[in-house]
Design a protein around this nucleic acid. Structure first.
Length: 315
DNA sequence: CTCCAGGCAATTG
DNA sequence: CAATTGCATGGA
């Protein structure tokens, strides 16, 4: 690995399963490194980052800058993977007692962390996630980065490597619909919605909502997000959960709806996913999972359901 | 061929 | 209210 990179070894006490976390469907910008097998690569805050599991319970982080988002790398990583959250708080003793079979299945996934990712990036990527498979979402996101993100060329002893950062709000705010649509599965409506959202972010309206999202009540936050065309309840909840650190937000998609019915016998989960039913389903889920970490638990269950029950492999 | 993938918004009954 | 349809593509 290039010697002008800063290297950090981070002890995680096996509370972070790096691969499962990065490829559990919450992030679409991390990739397998083309030049260095075993490493995952991404760009955050104009900083190139490589990560891998160095040995059991220890993560190796390589970066070309000492700080990310004004935090020392180790502090950033700790926060990025929400390592302050204790698994025991996520699933209550009551849950483990009442649903022993589900707990047996999901326990191996307790080292899947819900990440705190960049809000704008999450808004764009989850606006790309409607009614299509994971691989198509990933393709759209990488095309958007290639066309509108800043290009980084990294020269190493193994050759040259090209990476693209995620586009800034300004870059997407000034994009043309026809051009962006080539990156969004040829969906012009989706492209136009993303441009509109980026302009709202540029204006400061959306950006401000992100700053105050921690204290804001969830319903107010959702209203602000849903005011934008292309963002409904589900995507708003995904933005809150994965981009704003709101671990109480509980997005319900086709998979979550399935496990709510199969695992917890929530009646309304067998009916159609209308807005009214969506809200009822959330209330029922909170009774079982608790409120504070409903979404955090939900993501573990989501990943577990797809892998263990549906036997899905695409991420 | 049909059906379904991390939905949303507009329209119709 | 609920039910239906357009949006787009690809893999099973």
């Amino acid at each position: 690995m290039s010697n002008n990179f800063f290297k950090i070894l981070l002890k995680t006490d096996e509370r972070l399963d790096l691969k499962q976390t990065l490829f559990s469907g919450q992030s679409f910008t991390w990739n397998f490194s083309a030049l260095y097998s075993g490493y995952f690569a991404n760009i955050i805050d104009n900083t190139i980052i490589f990560m891998r599991e160095f040995e059991t319970g220890i993560i190796e982080v390589l970066s070309n800058r000492k700080q990310i988002n004004s935090l020392p790398i180790n502090e950033f990583i700790f926060r990025y993977f929400s390592l302050e959250i204790d698994e025991i708080k996520v699933f209550s003793p009551k849950f483990k007692n009442e649903f022993p079979e589900v707990w047996r299945l999901v326990k191996p996934y307790e080292s899947v962390r819900v990440m705190r990712q960049d809000p704008f990036e999450i808004m764009v990527t989850f606006m790309c996630a409607q009614g299509i498979g994971m691989h198509l979402i990933r393709r759209q996101v990488s095309m958007i980065a290639e066309h509108y993100g800043e290009k980084h060329v990294l020269d190493t002893e193994k050759g040259s490597m090209v990476l693209h950062g995620f586009p800034t709000p300004a870059a997407l705010a000034s994009a043309k619909v026809d051009e962006l649509a080539r990156c969004t599965n040829n969906n012009r409506i989706r492209a136009a919605n993303i441009i509109q959202m980026a302009r709202s972010f540029e204006s400061g309206k959306l950006a401000l909502a992100c700053v105050s999202s921690g204290e804001c009540d969830l319903e107010t936050l959702r209203e602000t997000l849903c005011a934008h065309s292309g963002i409904g309840l589900k995507i708003a909840d995904c933005i809150a959960l994965f981009g704003l650190g709101r671990f109480d937000a509980f997005p319900i998609d086709t998979h979550v709806k399935q496990y709510l019915w199969e695992w917890f016998s929530i009646e309304v989960a067998s009916k159609s996913l209308t807005e009214k039913n969506y809200r009822i389903m959330q209330d029922e889920a909170r009774k079982i999972l608790g409120n504070e970490y409903a979404g955090y638990a939900g993501h573990m269950l989501f990943h577990c359901w797809r892998k263990e029950v549906k036997k899905m492999t695409s991420f």
